[in-house]
Each structure stands twice: as structure tokens, then as C-alpha cells.
Design a binder for these strands. Structure first.
Lengths: 246, 246
DNA sequence: CGCGCTTCTTGATCTTAATCAAGGTCCTCC
DNA sequence: GGAGGACCTTGATTAAGATCAAGAAGCGCG
């Protein structure tokens, strides 16, 4: 077990590193991963899997954005996860999808056939360990989201979502220190509503209110800039250090 | 790697099996676990850990009920997890508690010192694997809870909680097939409210409504019996197969 | 037994966000 | 450039649940 952090080694022709599964893995494990992997592209709006579908791969998101959502009998839906580049999807050891997975933009995924991936996981503790870490992080994020859904006001919910997307976006482009955060909302108002447990009208109203009060600026409907991130954070209701959701 | 399922072997003097960590582990691993484990009792109402506290153990609940909760700056609180006997608490690889952990009844925990447990985990893939499975289950439960918090009505929330407790209670006493489900609510109305993202008054009103309409019966304030589980399930808003939360 | 405490219930009122409804903006495609 | 459609905004009204308030039930304890 050598000591190089292989998260620093790019995974073959993948445009991003496999944060998901390669961290700390050994070179030959990396090669094994190479053998069972393939790429798939989904177009914007396409359903990647319905709840109950057979799912014979696990994957990391290379580019684009996908969502996980659940639906009640009568059609009310709740988004339960947002998959951004470098996020992992699928569950080793489970055949069926337990959520509806949808591409909201064009999505490129780096897939691993499930069975060989599971075998690999059994033989290479580092991968299991890494997956455990990631799952624990996701669990923390889910629980932070429970706090949002259960106790925050509509305004706080919107501010929280914007803060998360801003942070996440900034970290993806490695421009962590520019003063003015700017990004395109990857979600429609309806998708935001589904994520936040609101209606799309309420989302629209609260976004307008935040704009009116100068907390954010809008160029078009989707392009947001945040002149003062701390001001936005104040609106989230969180403790000042904030969380690391999604 | 022999094939006995050691989940069938009672763990020394533990009153329950360590569903959490012993499943499929080998005999000598079991012995190693024995060496680093100890018991702790917390009395009802006692705080096991505050967010940010140093936590030098992980543990399984042996008896009693504990809760995980998070709080916003201004005191609004949301429960994000309910720990019942055989549930696991703590996070390998993390020093600090990220939630407030509280004993709602007297709680006996079987603790493992964190460092040695982490070492053990590194050397025994089965334990890491088992922990991964459990964490994935918890993640599913958290996401199902997100659906509840974001989209269910007060009435549906109450019905869902009662259904979960009823199911969980029945499985704990191995009386899975008695017709009338009966159990004591392990939570005050306030704790139920914190779990469901409601106020205690709303909880009280909805419980009263379900009683008035014969969906449940109450003896005293805490003892519930469910004459017709399917009837209760109808009130949850879930698909008819239901979930397996918490 | 009755005091004091916590927990719970119920009622009256208020607030937030949902619902219903209409119209506006922007983009694509001919 | 204009038609069609998806997406978004805003207004009016309603409804679900929060809040405020009072009192009842249950319980440990002297």
C-alpha cells in the first residue's frame, strides 16, 4: 500500500477526477476500474431511471446536473438529492432504483457495471471505505435538508438553496476567492420548488423579493449574482458558519 | 472466511445482537470487538452529546430511545433521526458530534472506543461493508423523511410516524403477526412535533382527530392501539407498499 | 390527600404559503 | 418576423397550520 493520494491522478480520459471512487486507490485498482467503466450521455429532461427500474450500473457525474426525486400517490413530488459533477449515484448491492433520477441539463456519466464494481469493492477495502465516507457525507447533507424542510421559512429556504449552489459552483470552477459570486441556476422554478417543499409561485415571489431588496441580482431569469455572500447567508437562518450541503 | 452468519451469534453479554457491526464478522473479529467495547447508561432526558462535542466512541443502542436533532440560531429545532435498539450512532473518522444526541428514555448503549474501532474497520472489510449498508439504509430513511417533511399534510405526517413506530415496535418484540398493534409512544407531543416539522398543538389536534375517527385508540396519553393497520396506512399518503423508515 | 409540576388538549385568532387566475417574457422554429 | 410553447411573474383569495391563551389530565412526592 503505497502512500500516493491517487485522487491526484486523473482517471484516464475522464474530464474530472473520480473523487467518488479513486481516492487512495492503488494503481492496479485504477486499472480494474478502467476495465469496467463506460460513458453515457443523457439529454436535458431525460429520465435516467424511474423508481423500481432495474439499474445495472453505478456512476459518477462527469458533467451536468441530475436530480433524485420521490412522489406520493397523488403526484406531489419531493426532490431528495441534487447530483452535481463528481457526485456518485446508484447503490452497490441494490438492483432497483429507489428514486426517479432525471437529467435536468445534458448529463455525462462515467458508469461502472454494477456486479464487477461490487466485486472490486469487496476486494479493495479502500473503495468501500471511500464510499462509506461519501455516503456519510450525503447523510449529513440529507439531514441538514431535513432541517430546512421542517423548520425554515420560504425565504430562508430560497436563500439556503442559492447559498448552496453558489458555494458548490464556486468550488467546481476553482475560483473560490472572487468577491462577487455569479452563477446560472441549474433548476427551473418548479424544480427549486420541488427541492424546497414549496410551490413554484412561492419560489418566484421569494426570489423576486430577494432581488427587490438587493440581496441578489438577476440577469434574465436564471443568471444570479450575489454581491455580498454574507448578506445572503444572514437570510438562511443558519448558524454563521453554515453547512456543506449537497 | 467461513460462511457462518455471525449475526446469529449473540455478542457475549449483550442483551441484543449487534446487528450493527457483527453481521458476518469472524470469530476473532468478534473477540477484538469484545476487547474495545464497554457499556454506558444514560437516564431519560439526559444529553448524550451536544453538536460540536468531542465524541470518542461509536455505539449501538441496546435499549431505550435516543434522538438526533439540529437547531437553528433562533432555537427552532428539527429532529433528524430516531435511534432505536440495534441502531448505530457515531461516525467513524469524525471527532465531533454533528447533532445533539438526547436520551428520551433511559438508554443503554454498547460503546466501542472510536480509534480502535476505526483500526478494526480498516482491517476487517466486512465491518466496513456492513457499516456502508447501514448508512445507505439510513440515507434512504432520511430521504423518505424529506418527502414527509416537504410534502405531507399534518395528518399524513402523524399517521406516518405512528405507522413507523408501530412497525418498528412490532418487529422488535418479534410479534409481527398479531392483529391489533399496540405500543407506547416513546415521544412526547413536543418531540413528535420536532420530528415532523409541526408544532405540538398541531400534533395534539391531529392525534385527537385520528382517535375521534377511530383510526387509532388511546389509553392514557401515550398508549396507542391500531385496530386496522391498513386503515392507518391509508392516511399516510404513501404508496400502498409503504416505506421502512428509521 | 392535595400540591406543584410537566404534559396534553382545546379554542380563538393570525400568518404563511397554497391555490386559482391572468398575463408577461423569452426562446425556438418556421 | 411571427406563432407557439415553455417558463416565469404577479395579484386575489383561501386554507393549513402557527401562535396565543386557558385550562385539564396525569404523576411524583411530601
Amino acid at each position: 500500500m503505497h502512500e500516493i493520494e491517487l485522487s491526484h491522478v486523473d482517471c484516464a480520459d475522464c474530464p474530472i477526477r473520480h473523487r467518488a471512487v479513486c481516492s487512495r486507490c492503488e494503481t492496479d485498482e485504477l486499472e480494474q476500474l478502467e476495465e469496467i467503466k463506460y460513458y453515457r450521455t443523457f439529454e436535458a429532461g431525460q429520465t435516467i431511471a424511474w423508481t423500481g427500474d432495474k439499474l445495472d450500473f453505478v456512476a459518477t457525474i462527469v458533467s451536468g446536473i441530475a436530480t433524485l426525486s420521490q412522489t406520493l400517490e397523488d403526484g406531489r413530488t419531493q426532490m431528495v438529492g441534487l447530483l452535481l459533477p463528481s457526485d456518485f449515484m446508484g447503490r452497490p448491492g441494490r438492483e432497483m432504483a429507489t428514486y426517479d433520477v432525471t437529467a435536468t441539463t445534458e448529463v455525462v456519466m462515467c458508469c461502472f457495471r454494477r456486479r464487477p464494481f461490487e466485486d472490486l469493492m469487496r476486494n479493495t477495502p479502500h473503495i468501500a471505505q471511500r464510499l462509506l465516507e461519501m455516503t456519510l457525507d450525503e447523510l449529513d447533507a440529507a439531514r441538514e435538508w431535513m432541517l430546512l424542510l421542517g423548520r425554515k421559512t420560504a425565504r430562508e429556504k430560497i436563500a439556503s438553496l442559492l447559498a448552496i449552489i453558489a458555494r458548490r459552483d464556486a468550488s467546481l470552477r476553482h475560483t473560490g476567492n472572487s468577491d462577487v459570486l455569479e452563477f446560472d441556476l441549474p433548476l427551473t422554478r418548479e424544480a427549486m420548488a420541488d427541492y424546497l417543499g414549496l410551490t413554484l409561485e412561492t419560489v418566484s415571489r421569494q426570489v423576486s423579493a430577494l432581488r427587490r431588496e438587493g440581496v441578489i441580482e438577476l440577469a434574465g431569469k436564471r443568471h444570479v449574482s450575489v454581491p455580498d455572500f454574507d448578506r445572503l447567508m444572514l437570510e438562511t437562518g443558519d448558524d454563521t458558519d453554515g453547512g456543506f450541503l449537497v
